[in-house]
Design a protein around this nucleic acid. Structure first.
Length: 178
DNA sequence: CCCTGATTCGC
DNA sequence: GCGAATCAGG
């Protein structure tokens, strides 16, 4: 994959929005997160300062004198508290109970953690819940993204929804819309 | 172990 | 210029 203008622009936009390198790589496709990071540096885009959470830049600042780099880092330490989709342990609360209360999730039991992480398809891993949420035709479509139970494609909550007996499954089908 | 970004260096 | 390997950290 080569860096077309279009892809570079997308990279800039996503990076500015605070997405992680791996997320950007996944969305662009065909590149690794290292490629993204490398490109970011080559473009002289501002790295992630010591903003909100994870600070890896502090390491770079700590380094003695690694590369012949002019200290032209903009002091842009914008504390944005970006609500990122994945990566950090920041989960977005999204307990959206449907308006209709005709849904009985009886067989599901007491497990009630429909807190999704709003992941896009490309960001799913082996241990993220792959339960789809929303209309695939709409742009708010995403996946649960919670930690999936061991070897299961779903989290504990959605696994129970998925593996219900056929008799009870219809009601769950309503709940499946979420 | 999962993830993050940073840097180096052979290509 | 590119990005895998590596590093350093949360």
């Amino acid at each position: 994959m080569n860096w077309t203008d279009e892809r570079v622009e997308r990279l800039k936009r996503l990076w500015a929005e605070g997405l992680s390198a791996s997320q950007i790589a996944a969305q662009l496709g065909g590149v690794s997160r290292n490629a993204v990071i490398g490109k970011v540096h080559r473009l002289n885009l501002p790295g992630r300062a010591k903003a909100g959470g994870s600070t890896t830049a502090s390491r770079a600042a700590k380094r003695p004198a690694p590369a012949p780099r002019p200290a032209n880092y903009p002091s842009r330490v914008t504390t944005r508290t970006v609500a990122r989709a994945a990566g950090s342990n920041m989960l977005k609360e999204e307990i959206d109970i449907d308006g209709d209360e005709t849904i009985e999730i009886r067989p599901v039991g007491n497990v009630v953690l429909p807190i999704s992480r709003k992941l896009v398809l490309t960001e799913l891993t082996e241990r993220t819940c792959k339960w789809p949420i929303g209309d695939p035709m709409k742009d708010d479509f995403h996946f649960c993204g919670c930690e999936s139970a061991d070897t299961s494609p779903y989290c504990s909550y959605h696994a129970k929804l998925a593996y219900q007996p056929v008799g009870e499954r219809r009601k769950a089908a309503n709940a499946a819309a979420r």
